[in-house]
């Protein structure tokens, strides 16, 4: 919990607010919408590719599509492009599966110098770990709610 601010700190906050550059939220949202949308469009194309050229259905094409998208993210991260896309697109490149891939891969590259076990292995999920934890937990909660609603006959 943040400490109570002293009167001096409050006075400074006012001066600081006047000079602080604000995040361009609307512009960031628009950029995120289009870049995120484009990434999903590529994902959709990959998904159709697996459905038309291989024996995948709409339900089963998800797994190879995700793997392919992460592969693209790996290449872009390794060539040093993904962080630049991230600075431009913000949530647009962070939210899709490629963002998850980027968080794992960038941490793996970063800690390569500390060796494979303690470096790559120990740090790979430094950022993605909480995504996995809270992702799995929220899926559990949603599934629980659905199950209860089904038992009670609401849906």
């Amino acid at each position: 919990m943040a400490k109570q601010k002293s009167p001096e700190q409050k006075r400074y906050e006012k001066i600081e607010q006047k000079h602080e550059a604000k995040r361009p939220v609307v512009k960031n949202c628009i950029k995120a919408f289009f870049v995120g949308g484009s990434i999903c469009l590529v994902g959709q194309a990959v998904s159709y590719f697996y459905m038309y050229y291989f024996h995948f259905t709409e339900q089963t094409a998800g797994n190879p599509t995700v793997a392919t998208m992460i592969f693209f993210a790996m290449l872009l991260t390794g060539f040093g492009v993904y962080d630049k896309i991230g600075q431009f697109a913000g949530a647009g490149s962070a939210v899709p599966i490629t963002g998850f891939g980027n968080s794992v891969i960038s941490a793996a590259i970063e800690h390569r110098t500390e060796g494979f076990v303690l470096g790559v292995g120990g740090n790979m999920f430094k950022l993605a770990g909480s995504v996995i934890l809270f992702g799995v937990f929220s899926a559990f909660v949603v599934a629980l709610i659905k199950t209860l609603l089904l038992i009670w006959g609401v849906i």
């Binding site: 550059a21 995040r23 991260t77 040093g80 962080d83 991230g86 980027n102 960038s106 970063e110």
Partner: peptide, 13 residues
């Protein structure tokens, strides 16, 4: 901060 290749958006400050 984050790994150098991590695509986070830094604020203008």
């Amino acid at each position: 901060r984050y790994p150098t290749e991590y695509g986070s958006q830094k604020p203008p400050t």
